[in-house]
Simulated scan of single mutants.
Amino acid sequence: MQLTYKGKTKDVYSLEDGNYLLRFKDDVTGENGVFDPGANTVGLTIEGVGRAGLSLTKFFFEKLNAEGIPTHYVDADIENATMTVKPAELFGNGLEVICRYRAVGSFLKRYGMYAKEGQALDAFVEVTLKDDAKGDPPINEDALDMLGVLTKEEYKELKELTQKIGGVVKEELAKKDIDLYDIKFEFGRIGENKHIALIDEISGGNMRAYKNGEYIEPLQLEKLMLSK
């Protein structure tokens, strides 16, 4: 296998069969030693978070695949912290799609004139460009279409998939009395027909979750979710 990309939280290798291997690291995004799923820099290293994140990702991707929701997932090797995935074509240079159930983080910073902290949101979908230098600027449906990143039909599908997958995650967390505040997804085009599918991961590193009003760190979230 050949290294094709070194990411903040994962490295990507190409395989001879055309698939890719993602190697999960123990790094998480944040600033000044504080975890933040929306940050553009590695903020801290937490021993074991790579395997834990992969374990939760495996749990959710296998559930989504079983429900017929398109993903790039093939299989996972927890011991080696690796996941095999199908090749996917990014939208432009990559998009991040956030599904928000509570007003926190950057949403609250931007709309604090109207929003109260923790205010309930109805699965609000927000799309940002993956551009670290510009701080991942938000972009709307019209601009995405006009700039040729994706069509309005693709945006509609992207939004529906985001809310559907977010709902699956939220429902699973609720079984453990955990409240999902927001979650970040990535999507790509897969296969000969270029259908939209979920890519990347679903772990504590890309969501904010609370239990009894207390924020749950990524490593703890995975322990709570995967405990019998």
Rank of each mutant, 00 (worst) to 15 (best):
N19W: 09
T128Y: 03
K86I: 07
K10I: 07
P137W: 04
E67T: 01
F91Q: 05
A39L: 11
A133H: 09
V104C: 11
V34I: 15
E96G: 08
G38E: 14
K58C: 02
K184G: 01
L226E: 09
N193P: 01
D75N: 15
L108N: 09
R23Q: 13
G148Q: 10
A88F: 15
S227F: 06
D177Y: 06
V49G: 04
E160C: 11
A174K: 15
T45G: 13
K184T: 12
N206I: 12
L224N: 04
K10M: 10
E217V: 06
E160M: 13
D122T: 11
V49C: 08
K8F: 09
N193K: 13
E153K: 08
A133Y: 06
Y101R: 12
V97F: 12
Y215T: 15
N93T: 15
K194V: 05
N193V: 06
G33I: 05
P138Q: 05
L158G: 02
Y114T: 13
Q2H: 02
L224S: 08
V169E: 03
N140V: 00
L144D: 02
L90D: 12
F59Y: 15
D27Q: 15
V49L: 10
L129Q: 01
G68Y: 08
A174P: 08
F61Y: 14
S55H: 00
L15P: 05
G166A: 09
V42I: 07
T128L: 03
D17T: 08
Q163V: 07
L15W: 05
I199H: 09
D26Q: 12
E96R: 03
P37S: 11
E31H: 11
L54R: 01
G118Q: 02
V97D: 09
F124Q: 04
K176H: 11
V42Q: 14
